[in-house]
């Protein structure tokens, strides 16, 4: 019989489990019910008290805690996760995606003599467990199965609802870990200033800026300053996250006019991110399927484009407005600011 373990960690506030962890808990509960398998939930962090928030799951709760495990770091996180898996004797390990556990999941699987698969978006199968994942940057979808155990499965964020349950007094088993030798010290987080931050994973909306913003406009001129003001104005008014096409972020390397607040981290699509947001508005984007994967996981999609037949929009967006994005966004910003 399978034994399921969900691995969890705190979010950046240090006072709650990360959203991805809570999503993995939901996935674990669902899978345990379906397979009739025992469920354990493991926790890695400075203080195991947070495990009380999982009391209502009824799962076996295990923790590796202590100051050494407060910060994300390969050596300590890998040792902690390995210890939890061994303590739970897990055959299936569900891991929330995210920088912290994605860094160690494969190493943990190797240490356990098991296997790992990442970017899993769904768990299914009737006779045997099957996992759905993407290949070729979200362009080919596959359903896979593994005979080897333990099987470490890293779940993509946004694929399950976050677990919500009443906190209680949980019985948490502390798992002892011999502190591994490490040569790495985590010294902190470097982030853009609050008003310069344009990547907001929790935003409801993704605003996609395409290369058209920096191309010649009907008057034969380039209006990068206007484009920058309009885009930032929209982001301020809606608190949307900003994504961009590869061609636009690459322009910086060619000495062309480029929007000053864009970096490669904004890039979505082929060699960029495929973020999940409820809504997406693309502007001045052009391209075909390889680029469009950038909004594969966007719920409602609208586009403003001068070309109604463009591959970015046709069959990919719910609505395309054939119009000049400069004019529309200017008016939109004006209306949003009045609306307050």
């Amino acid at each position: 019989m399978e034994k399921i373990l969900v691995l969890t960690h705190l979010d950046e506030t240090g006072s709650a489990l990360s959203r991805a962890s809570l999503e993995a808990v939901t996935a674990g509960l669902e899978l345990a019910t379906r397979l009739g398998a025992p469920l354990g939930i493991g926790f890695v962090g400075s203080d195991a008290a947070i495990a009380n928030s999982l009391a209502a799951t009824g799962a076996r709760l295990l923790a590796v805690s202590g100051e050494a495990f407060a910060q994300p770091r390969y050596a300590t996180d890998a040792a902690a996760c390995e210890a939890l898996c061994r303590a739970a004797d897990a055959t299936i390990v569900l891991v929330p995606a995210g920088a912290r556990f994605s860094r160690v999941a494969a190493g943990v699987a190797y240490r356990l003599g098991g296997v790992v698969d990442t970017h899993i978006t769904a768990l299914g199968g009737t006779e045997k467990l099957e996992a759905t994942r993407w290949f070729y940057r979200q362009r080919v979808e596959a359903v896979i199965s593994r005979s080897a155990r333990p099987w470490v499965i890293v779940l993509d964020a946004g694929t399950h609802a976050a677990y919500v349950g009443a906190p209680g007094n949980a019985n948490v088993e502390q798992v002892a870990v011999e502190l591994p030798a490490t040569r790495t010290t985590v010294s902190g987080i470097r982030a853009p200033k609050q008003d310069e931050q344009t990547i907001r994973p929790d935003a409801r909306m993704l605003f996609v800026a395409g290369a058209g913003w920096t191309k010649k406009q009907p008057d034969g001129q380039i209006h990068v300053d206007d484009a920058a003001k309009l885009i930032l104005g929209f982001l301020r008014a809606t608190n949307a996250s900003l994504g961009s096409s590869k061609s636009l972020v690459d322009q910086g390397g060619e000495g062309q006019s480029v929007l000053p607040f864009l970096t490669h981290m904004n890039q979505i699509g082929q060699t960029g991110a495929t973020p999940r947001h409820a809504k997406g508005l693309s502007t001045c984007c052009h391209g075909e399927e390889p680029h469009v994967v950038g909004w594969r996981f966007i719920g409602e999609r609208r586009a403003i484009s001068l070309d109604p037949n463009c591959g970015w929009t046709r069959g990919k967006a719910d609505v395309v407005y054939v119009a000049d994005a400069f004019a529309v966004i200017a008016k939109l910003n004006e209306m949003l600011s009045t609306k307050g």
Binding site: H286, E288, G311
Partner: peptide
């Protein structure tokens, strides 16, 4: 969008 596509799309696909 499959066989008859805009020239701009042809440049990309």
């Amino acid at each position: 969008g499959r066989l008859l596509i805009t020239q701009q799309d042809a440049l990309l696909i």
